[in-house]
């Protein structure tokens, strides 16, 4: 997005974006390394390769802004400030997990951070973000709501119903589509018409929409800042489509290029456009950040991730009686 090499954000912001992306990457690489131990006993949908969208968007948000996500939510949770230890404990099924061990990787939540919840029914949480925005409007509050979802979600009815309603009431909701080209193993070509870009669907609903490079953290961030400004001004919902790519298999820790649903050349091309490597080079060359600064930051992250895994492993499993608690909220107003 910056062919001239002119940077769009401050060095401080650029460094923050790097830290967020590098932290997400390291967490998920550690999951990859240790998933085979069979101690993380739930499905994991890794976002390695897609970190720039989570980092760039969440960097533009404030504390009282709230986000929801889907099955591939680790990055969004961490970028919004979700507690890492609680996330890892959740994936390990421990009582200290963010959902008490009842949710696992697909059901993360951190209310204090404004991460309102992630659920793995594709498209299912988009309407909830719209509902959060409706609540804000009815109460006269200023916070905005963000929904993260993938390219398959735009094929669901609830996506179109949600956009129609958000546009009708000009709600302050940011709709973030991470287009990684595949729904599990099904490519876009068998799911959506050729020549009709996803962003056109949002425009068809009368919503301000743009399509951008989702592997350029600064471009993502700048677009998100513009969107947030427009949302806070009351100009109605904004839709951003980001082109990106999932490196690992749809679900699980492995690479899956051997099964033949995507071309090796395609994979290699996206690998060469690693959002973190690209951004790291920009930090060194354009923002003049010292190598040592990045090294220290990376060391800090590595230690934090190690500590989070240790916390998760050493935490206790929920006792048997926890199985039958919290089915209902017990308090009435």
């Amino acid at each position: 997005m910056n062919p001239s090499g002119v940077t769009a954000v401050s060095a401080e912001t650029a460094l923050a974006l790097y830290r967020t992306m590098r932290r997400i990457r390291r967490v998920e690489e550690a999951i990859v390394e240790r998933y085979g131990e069979q101690r993380m006993r739930c499905p994991v949908h890794l976002c390695i390769g897609q970190e720039a969208v989570a980092a760039g968007v969440c960097q533009a948000l404030e504390g009282d802004d709230q986000i929801v996500s889907g099955h591939r939510s680790h990055g969004h949770y961490l970028a919004k400030g979700g507690d890492l230890k609680a996330m890892m404990a959740e994936i390990y099924g421990k009582a200290s997990g963010c959902s008490g061990g009842k949710g696992g990787s697909m059901h993360l939540i951190d209310r204090a951070a404004g991460f309102l919840g992630a659920t793995p029914i594709v498209g299912g949480t988009i309407a909830m973000a719209v509902g959060v925005a409706l609540a804000a409007k009815l109460r006269g509050e200023t916070g905005i709501a963000v929904a993260f979802f993938g390219d398959a979600a735009v094929e669901t009815g609830i996506f179109h119903e949600s956009l129609n309603f958000a546009a009708t009431h000009r709600l302050a909701v940011l709709l973030v589509c991470e287009n990684n080209l595949y729904s599990v193993y099904s490519p876009l070509s068998v799911r959506q018409p050729e020549g009709r870009p996803i962003v056109a669907l949002a425009r068809g609903h009368g919503i301000t929409a743009d399509a951008l490079d989702g592997n350029d953290a600064e471009a993502v961030h700048v677009a998100a800042l513009d969107a947030v400004e427009s949302l806070r001004a009351g100009d109605g919902p904004v839709f951003l489509e980001f082109a990106t790519y999932r490196w690992r298999e749809h679900c699980g820790p492995n690479l899956d290029n051997d099964i033949g649903y995507r071309a090796p050349e395609e994979f290699e091309a996206w690998l060469s456009r690693c959002p973190i490597a690209t951004h790291r080079a920009r930090l060194l060359n354009d923002h003049r950040v010292e190598e040592g600064v990045l090294g220290d930051l990376e060391e800090d992250i590595d230690k934090e991730v190690r500590d989070a895994f240790t916390f998760a492993e050493e935490s206790a499993f929920p006792p048997a009686e926890e199985m039958s608690t919290e089915i209902y909220a017990s308090e009435s107003r």
């Binding site: 059901h107 939540i109 919290e326």
Partner: peptide, 8 residues
């Protein structure tokens, strides 16, 4: 309520 451990 259940799957988020009572958080929502």
């Amino acid at each position: 309520h259940y799957m988020f451990g009572g958080e929502a």
